[in-house]
């Protein structure tokens, strides 16, 4: 676009009229400035609080695995048991706090692994010639052909239950989408002039990848992966819920839901408490992703 638009700043308000009348593209560009949104602040604070609780909390609460049957199924707000006790008389608050670490790690590690592997694959595919590009992308297409959750379930079922196997399974299903984002961004970058200049100056493939491509593809990937963390936490807890994650008696949010669903009719809050924890953590990472998108000025919607 060679838009020689007549309006620079300020022609459009941040609140466009309902029909979206936008005088010119420049104005739209100007509207998308980097900014720190309130959502970003609140979600970052929430995540910091959750992390703090999972790190320090276990030292402040009672042993999550000790309970007496005389104290089973105490209601919310009982003396000494703020969130009550479960079917084995174990303190729910203690299990919730202690369950935070495995629940979060089982969501975070797969994203960390897949963001590294996926970025490497995507950038490599984006920078290489037809043959390698085709080989990498078609292989990823195969993984795309599986309904993701089902594939994760199949992989963890095949490997056997256990938190490390659930992490492997989730990492496998998250690599293809990350790689696709990285590939798209890399391809977009290659068309730009300065890449041409870098190549013309005789820079090698690896040097281009590290110096030119990575800094530029990083923001969209960071935004995307942040939103993936929310998804990954939900999936990880889901695998535990199905009996594919941590094994009892370890405290973990998904497993708690699965444990407590037998009391669903009499004590629904037992199921709701860990569910709420998962929801809050997941929403927080999704909002953080949105906030990062505004902060890093990445275009487009994060697709989860």
């Amino acid at each position: 676009m060679t838009a020689v638009s007549d309006i620079a700043l300020g022609a459009t308000s941040s609140t466009d009229p309902p029909t979206g009348v936008r005088p010119a593209t420049d104005a739209t560009v100007a509207r998308r400035r980097r900014r720190v949104t309130w959502g970003f602040r609140i979600s970052a604070a929430t995540i910091a609080a959750i992390v703090l609780v999972t790190l320090i909390g276990p030292f402040l609460v009672s042993d999550p695995n000790v309970g007496s049957l005389s104290e089973r199924l105490l209601p919310l707000g009982s003396a000494g048991h703020l969130l009550g006790t479960d079917g084995q008389g174990r303190d729910v608050l203690s299990r919730l706090v202690n369950g935070g670490r495995p629940s979060l790690l089982a969501g975070l590690i797969p994203v960390a692994v897949s963001s590294l592997v996926g970025t490497a694959l995507g950038v490599a595919a984006g920078l290489s010639g037809r043959l390698t590009h085709g080989a990498i992308m078609r292989t990823l297409d195969v993984f795309y052909a599986f309904p993701a959750v089902l594939l994760a379930i199949a992989i963890s079922a095949a490997l056997g239950s256990g938190i490390s196997n659930s992490i492997i399974a989730l990492a496998v299903i998250l690599i293809p989408p990350v790689a696709r984002v990285a590939e798209t961004e890399t391809r977009r970058l290659i068309d730009l002039d300065y890449m041409e200049a870098a190549r013309a100056s005789g820079a090698g493939g690896l040097s281009i990848a590290v110096r030119q491509v990575l800094p530029n593809v990083a923001p969209p990937i960071i935004v995307y992966c942040t939103a993936l963390i929310g998804l990954s936490i939900v999936y990880a807890a889901g695998l535990s819920f199905l009996g594919l994650g941590v094994s009892p008696p370890t405290a973990e949010w998904g497993l708690m839901i699965s444990d407590y669903k037998q009391f669903l009719y009499s004590f629904p809050e037992l199921t709701a408490i860990p569910a709420l924890a998962i929801l809050v953590a997941s929403v927080a990472f999704n909002v953080l992703g949105d906030g990062l998108r505004d902060l890093l000025d990445v275009r487009g919607e994060t697709l989860t």
Partner: peptide, 22 residues
């Protein structure tokens, strides 16, 4: 939209069962 994309379906299903079905 924001909350629903973060929802753990298994727990929502359970809660729907309690309140709407049971």
């Amino acid at each position: 939209a924001l909350v629903s994309i973060s929802v753990p379906q298994y727990s929502v299903g359970l809660l729907l069962i309690i309140y709407l079905a049971d």
